[in-house]
Amino acid sequence: MKEQLEAIQTEALERIAETNEMKELQAIRVTYLGKKGSLTGVLRGMGKLSKEERPVIGEIANRVRESITDAIDRKNETLAQQALEKQLEKEAIDVTLPGRPVQLGGPHLLTTIVEEIEDLFIGMGFEVREGPEVETDYYNFEALNLPKDHPARDMQDSFYITNELLLRTHTSPVQARTMREYEGSKPVKMICPGKVYRRDTDDATHSHQFTQIEGLYVDKDVRMSDLKGILDVFAKKMFGYDREIRLRPSFFPFTEPSVEMDISCKVCNGEGCSVCKGTGWIEILGAGMVHPKVLEMAGYDANVYTGFAFGMGPDRIAMLKYGVDDIRQFYTNDRRFLTQYHNA
């Protein structure tokens, strides 16, 4: 009987090893282990055995059953694995084919710059204020110490609609309006971004419509060194911590003293190159201490309050920062231009 069992085992294991079909494996299981299977048949004859033989043969029979079961299970797993692999191989795709495109939108480059500057000044406690693009002559000029026959009005030839209304030439009127709103009674700490308009013929460096951000800080005891400090923080955050700033005296009717701020040229590190016209410096913004007349006109006592103001052009900053060589690109909206700056 022992020989019989071992013969079954040998035969079964051989068949299991040979088969490559799940179905056949199932048949093998039935053939040997099923109710009518050969192993079962042999075991049925156990009753005829002696008391001594029974446990010995029983143990052998169990071992044979286990080994067959085990072999079938292992084979089953192997075949299943092979089947899966075959299936997955069939599912293989050409990964080099293009994916389904995602429609990418994005901000305009000027918005990116404006929001970056807004966030930077918000971080320093400034509020963002907006105002009308069609302004009165009073707020655009007179409230900023530019009376009607002031020669500096030539500097910014304007788009008038009537004698008293014009497209604003800078966002400074928003400062004047804000100061007026605060009635000379509390500090002002604001920036005002927006569109502005001047009578310039559109070319690579001029646009009759452009963007401006101005800032104003009015409080008791504001010093010119504070202006220098704030501008330095701004310049370093905006253009890089390795940039230096330089202030030069300048002239604006609404500030006194007035300054122009340059940053050291990134291209040549101050050595002088074509970008900075050999000077090592690039002009970024105009600024100054608020003219006492401007404070007085807005209802602030110039003996108590002092302040500084600054103004810059995001168009120019964007051109410098991203190497854009023609300001008209910002307004013609060529798709090939706009999509370059999805993630600017």
Binding site: G123, K189, M224, S225, V233, L247, P249, M289
Partner: peptide, 30 residues
């Protein structure tokens, strides 16, 4: 203020210190 500018520019804007305003800080926000 005009004289202030004259003094400052001959003194040299480069020689002005970098400071931050002393005024009460306020939270900036949109």
């Amino acid at each position: 203020e005009d004289m202030l500018e004259e003094v400052a520019r001959i003194y040299g804007y480069d020689n002005l210190p970098y400071t931050l305003p002393n005024g009460a800080s306020q939270a900036g926000a949109l």
